[in-house]
């Protein structure tokens, strides 16, 4: 790793100041992605601003409208244990990585990174969740911008993610055998005004919504509604672990299974 300083501010305000001054700074959430990246020398910040000591971005609660509000600094383990009001989301968090990784990795860190194989982006997109930062609120549909890219500005921190709890939901993940990340992960959420289906792991553009499946399921929320629907393999990731066609096939399979499990 290149050298850098670490600061541990205790408020969002202090963190933002550190991130916006003249030093090359990067925010450090749980570090479960950033630290391996730094070990590979793929990033060279002069300073890391740890968000781990900021209590404002901790906590899970429900607001008056019943939406589940999860602090950006909440770990996957804490979401798994504390987001019982949204069982599919808690279940997704409980299967990220492994127990030790879940004790450090955070929802804010995962979303800000937008790894094309990460699980959380599919939950956020399928739930039409709101990503709340220190400066604004960003709708899920506007948040994800392609591989490792989001709508976040430099120095903008995710303070909270707000999920409307659906009537039915499930997440089905097919693991890449080596990394155990999602080779394909599908999150299906049924709301009063329709069904949303978000797919991670499959596309070269990162998480996306499967519009055709959403339309079919909004009419009839049953696996049979997906009969005959398929995705094109081109534009899907093709690598050692599977061709684009295989991923496209898995998307259909996982969507079906998610509907059956919801």
């Amino acid at each position: 790793m290149y050298t850098f300083d670490i600061e541990r501010p205790s408020t969002v305000g202090d963190a933002v100041k550190l991130l916006s001054d003249s030093t090359e700074s990067q925010p450090l959430g749980g570090g479960q992605t950033l630290i391996p990246t730094l070990k590979q020398r793929l990033a060279m910040p002069d300073r890391l601003v740890s968000l781990g000591g900021i209590t404002e971005i901790q906590g899970i609660s429900q607001d008056d409208g019943g939406a589940l509000c999860i602090g950006g600094g909440v770990t996957h383990a804490d979401v798994a244990a504390g987001a019982g009001a949204y069982a599919a989301l808690a279940g997704l968090a409980g299967k990220i990585g492994d127990p030790a990784v879940r004790n450090r990795g955070t929802i804010g860190g995962s979303l800000a990174n937008n790894d094309p194989s990460a699980c959380y982006p599919s939950a956020v997109l399928a739930s039409g969740a709101t990503v709340v930062t220190n400066t604004r609120e960003i709708a899920a549909d506007d948040f994800f911008d392609g591989l490792f890219t989001t709508a976040l500005e430099e120095g903008e921190i995710i303070t909270e993610v707000r999920f409307a709890v659906p009537q039915k939901a499930a997440y089905m993940k097919f693991e890449q055998p080596a990394s155990r990340f999602a080779l394909v992960g599908v999150f299906v959420a049924k709301y009063a005004d329709g069904v949303r289906v978000a797919v991670t792991g499959a596309s070269e553009g990162g998480v996306f919504r499967w519009a055709e499946a959403e339309a079919a399921l909004s009419t009839n929320f049953a696996a049979s509604a997906l009969d005959g629907l398929s995705l094109d393999g081109s534009g899907m990731i093709s690598d050692l672990h599977g061709s684009g066609d295989y991923r496209a096939h898995l998307v259909a399979v996982m969507t079906r299974r998610a509907v059956e499990a919801a």
Partner: peptide, 13 residues
């Protein structure tokens, strides 16, 4: 009290 991968955490943290 929580299991952590010490190779993926800085001493400062």
């Amino acid at each position: 009290g929580k299991a952590v991968k010490s190779c993926t955490m800085f001493a400062a943290e």
